[in-house]
Design a binder for these strands. Structure first.
Lengths: 147, 147
DNA sequence: TAAAACCTATGACCTACTCACAGGTCAATG
DNA sequence: CATTGACCTGTGAGTAGGTCATAGGTTTTA
């Protein structure tokens, strides 16, 4: 292999914290060789690709176990792509759920903010702590049973 | 006080897990009295109000330390409302940032999904792990410096 | 040759709970 | 009155994905 990197070099090359490299190594996402002389880890171009891949996958919302699964499948010369397509679709749906939830929240917050314009601050009197929050109407749709 | 509740009664009244009541008590958000006979905690109507308040505040995105701060201010007969308004505004802005980020992500995911329609799965060949992800274009705007 | 900069492994810390455990207490039943 | 079940107590671990601290070993550079 052309590249032979120690932890910090790999970390710098991928733009991550050296501790993340060590963490991923412990977690089995990276498989460096070890120099028996000094016990140092040595990473090659393949590890760099794996690390970059892992970071991209994390940004897309794949969990660490999912990333490891993909990498392991690739190691076994199975194409992980069908699985990736599948998890990716699920993740996209999840992102859309999150967006809707946050939009609901924003709506309620804006409404609360509007209502608060007209409310006095008031000092806590033993009956109320902060009316701003106590009088906030929680319209959260009850938790789904199927979850 | 009219109400005198043990842990589970308070938890049921507020619709939370009894362990949450114990946790909030350890964290100083609730201040029950203790029965010296059996070492049990006793909560009153005030604790119920604090607990309900805390849950509402959490739903609005306040952190536990923030909630404690608000409750402490109320205990000192200072109106926490100005602070609440302030943190609330920040939280709303944050929610809006999160929404935008997620919308960006969704956009990129949808684009990737479209592009993938035309890409073959391919078996890992030592150079690529999963083209679907490796060729995904990460347009994440570089991290803000001010954060 | 000595300091600076790196490496190692391990464990703690972060959030906001939730759960498990071991042992004490209490109300009701047989 | 003893047992059972449901409650209580405190403590510690687990969750996700890292980040940081520590103590000690190695390599590089001045």
């Amino acid at each position: 292999m052309l590249l032979d990197m120690k932890v910090k070099e790999l970390a710098t090359a991928a733009g991550v914290n050296p501790d993340t490299v060590r963490f991923y190594t412990r977690e089995g996402l990276l498989k460096p060789t070890r120099n028996p002389d000094n016990n140092y880890q040595h990473y090659d171009a393949e590890d760099l690709r794996r690390l970059r891949f892992a970071r991209k996958a994390r940004q897309l919302g794949f969990s660490l176990p999912e990333v490891r699964q993909i990498l392991d499948q690739a190691d076994d010369h199975h194409s992980p792509c069908p699985m990736v397509r599948d998890v990716f679709q699920q993740r996209l749906a999840e992102v859309e759920r999150e967006i809707e939830e946050l939009q609901q929240l924003r709506k309620r917050m804006q409404a609360a903010l509007g209502a608060w314009q007209d409310m006095p601050d008031g000092t806590p009197d033993g009956r109320t702590i902060c009316r701003l929050i106590e009088h906030w109407d929680d319209n959260t749709p009850a938790k789904h049973v199927e979850e």
